[in-house]
Computed example of a mutant assay.
Amino acid sequence: MFLKTKPTGAGLAAALVTALTLTLTGCSSDTTAPADVRADAGSDAKGAFGPVDCRKAKCIALTFDAGPGEDTPHLLDVLKEKKVHATFFLLGKNHVKKYPETVRRLAAEGHEVGNHTWTHKILTDHEPAEIRTELERTQNAIARITGKKPRLMRPPQGRTDDTVSEVSKELGLAQVLWSATAKDYSTTDSKLIEKRILDQAGKDGIILLHDIYEGTVPAVPGIIDALKKQGYTFVTVPQLMAPAEPVPGTIYRP
């Protein structure tokens, strides 16, 4: 997850399990639910709706971290077939730079392209200048490929604080956490990944997966089909907030 597309090893997996389990409770109490900003949006709000109005529909956002990777093109084929748009939080150094055509395709096919830092450093462990570098390098790399800088970022391991929020605000980035995770870094069992997501899915939720792990992409068709049968419509994170728009620096979590 940190530097390789398909990391292995029990030690790394255990460390990731511990870290991401901790972040499910969040690193900051100052979070905002997308549904709340959507409900509070005034008549002058300009957020773009997706396939439905999430004020009325049962919406959920599918998000992928730490790519793109070698399996991402297949994932894009699946999403295209299922008519689903997702939000991708991309790593810069060994992913955006390595797979520029995939990044270009993500944007061209209507997915939301977000920032997951340059090298997956834990931002809360660093000074503002280094936080800025981690985010800004990825902003610029994505913009060179797609012509547009991201407006969303996901801090590695969900770790954020006031300093991270301030730098994010300066760079025009809203922060996006999650409500459901499969812990797909700890298993290659696609059926288990699917079950974990279905067990946690809820209206206005944000699903966290990784398109760099072996068991994840094969689990996606089943997740989509099952949730559609339950009446969910898949939207990007900004569409989940519409007609409100993401506010730079704000931490969003369902």
Rank of each mutant, 00 (worst) to 15 (best):
P155C: 06
T117K: 06
A41M: 08
H120S: 00
I212L: 15
E130V: 07
L20H: 11
K195N: 12
I142G: 05
V78I: 15
M153D: 06
R144A: 15
E194W: 03
T87E: 09
F2G: 08
A107H: 15
Q239G: 11
P100I: 14
K183A: 14
L171P: 06
D125E: 14
D30Q: 15
H210I: 00
P218Q: 05
D36I: 14
Q230W: 01
C27V: 01
P243L: 07
A45V: 11
T119L: 00
K82R: 15
T124P: 04
G158K: 04
L3G: 10
K195S: 08
G114E: 05
T23K: 01
H74N: 07
L173E: 14
N115S: 11
L79Y: 08
V17S: 12
L79C: 08
M1W: 08
G158L: 03
S165Y: 01
E136F: 05
G9F: 03
G26Q: 09
T188A: 03
G215A: 04
E136W: 04
A244P: 09
E112G: 10
I251P: 00
C59R: 01
F49A: 11
D204P: 05
M153S: 12
E194I: 07
L91H: 03
L208M: 06
G147C: 06
D30T: 06
R132T: 13
G110R: 13
K229H: 07
K46P: 01
A219W: 07
L209C: 01
A66G: 02
K93Y: 06
T31K: 13
G114Q: 05
L208T: 01
R55G: 14
K97N: 10
P7V: 00
V167P: 07
D211S: 04
S29I: 10
G249S: 09
N94I: 11
C59V: 00
L16C: 11
V176W: 08
G147E: 10
R137M: 11
R104P: 05
K148Q: 15
T138C: 03
T133F: 01
L177N: 04
T181M: 09
P155F: 02
E112I: 09
T31N: 11
T233N: 14
K82M: 07
E112M: 12
D36G: 01
P7C: 00
L16A: 14
L62A: 11
S43F: 13
E127R: 01
G202S: 13
A66T: 12
P254C: 07
T187S: 13
A10D: 13
Y232P: 11
T160F: 05
P155G: 10
T102G: 08
Q200V: 00
V217C: 09
L12C: 07
K83N: 15
G11M: 02
D211P: 05
G9K: 04
R144N: 13
H210D: 02
F89R: 11
V17C: 06
C59D: 13
E127A: 07
A13S: 03
G47I: 00
T23N: 13
D125G: 04
T32R: 14
E130H: 07
A86C: 08
A107Q: 13
E81P: 01
V37D: 02
G202Y: 02
A57V: 02
M241V: 12
A108N: 03
R196T: 03
D71K: 03
K121L: 13
V220A: 09
D44A: 15
T163V: 07
L240W: 02
L135V: 04
G249W: 02
T119S: 01
